[in-house]
Design a protein around this nucleic acid. Structure first.
Lengths: 193, 193
DNA sequence: TTCATTTCTTAACTTAAGTGAACGAGTTGT
DNA sequence: ACAACTCGTTCACTTAAGTTAAGAAATGAA
């Protein structure tokens, strides 16, 4: 489990044994069961999540309807905006599979950052990369139709199609479950004709 | 002009005079005319932009149609994904007004970051905040209709409605210019009846 | 100014997403 | 085993966005 973490980090910065031990001593690995809600709307938290295995999702409760906006799987990190803005959370985070997480809180990060500049470099690089990736995702979303988004998702994250319920995928694609159902039927029809 | 920059920075970290001078010595302020194209599709660059005054926009050329995905105005920063990924740019950046920019390149930033850890902290904080803000923007986009997005834009960035051409606003909202025109007419009609 | 181009709007028609309801399959809890 | 619930699909209908085309208004250049 540690190997997974340090393998990931080594792609960005190289850590000494001291630095690795400092991280391990923080006791940050957590196993959580499918269905666990990590964060609720209205709650405050300082916790960030890094998925080692499994899948978590973020969703809003608008007009008592669930709107899923994000899935985070192996090697993906999520720092909820409420941690940055120090406001109550606007959304829920739940585990849609049994999941192994790293949970770190912002106080802890601040301390490690000031003790180990290398760690701050890591955080900076990861934030910059995530920002770039997310900008591209957003641009693709804006410039394409629901059908194109779905086809795009099949290409880029085929695992999600398998492991995530349809109605959650639908709002992730910005449409209603019925529309996704219909859209899929339309595509099957196309591939036949 | 420098006051604007240091006033902005002082919200996040406090700089010594030495640090301020180090930044000024880099000669990073640029004035560019309306219509100037800062970056073209297919080009490589290491430059990031920070808008002191004016407005720049990012747009794709898809099927020889312009798709505008972002506007950056006073006190907003843009690091194109191509700088992070070291790939050719997928989009254009142009100035839609006479604009005063700070243009920094990633080599320069790397050098300043290693000399002044405080600067790296600043970059980390800004990236984290932008990431959080962008996540919320994306979520709002996904969970709302074109009409809601337009109303939302009127609330959050009323200046854009004034300073940006309709057809650019339309693709920013994820729709065609004709649809935005119709949508606006519909809203006027609603407010009458 | 005049001419050309771009931008915005309007309209008629097509296509697809939203809505509300119903149904069967699969799951959970008792 | 049964009831209650969730999930995915389908259908009929409504609403709004895409498409194509045309024309008015604004902008820019010769």
């Amino acid at each position: 489990m540690q190997d997974i973490l340090f393998g990931f980090i080594s792609k960005y910065v190289s850590l000494t044994d001291d630095e690795k031990n400092a991280i391990l001593s923080l006791d940050i690995f957590r196993s959580v069961k499918k269905g666990t809600i990590l964060l609720k709307e209205g709650q405050k938290t300082k916790d960030s999540y890094f998925v080692l295995k499994g899948c978590i999702r973020t969703y809003y409760d608008l007009d008592s309807e669930e709107k899923t906006t994000g899935f985070f799987t192996e090697m993906e990190a999520l720092t909820p905006p409420c941690v940055i803005n120090k406001t109550p959370s606007e959304y829920y985070i739940s585990c849609i599979e049994d999941t192994i997480l790293i949970i770190s809180n912002s106080d802890m990060e601040a301390e490690v950052n000031s003790k180990f500049p290398k760690f701050e470099t890591l955080c900076r690089i990861l934030s910059e990369q995530l920002l770039a990736k997310q900008r591209i995702d957003f641009d693709e979303f804006k410039t394409s139709s629901p059908e194109q988004r779905y086809l795009n998702l099949i290409q880029k994250r085929p695992d999600l199609i398998q492991r995530v319920p349809q109605h959650q995928l639908a709002s992730f694609l910005g449409i209603k479950p019925q529309s996704l159902s219909r859209l899929r039927a339309r595509l099957v029809e196309k591939n036949k004709g």
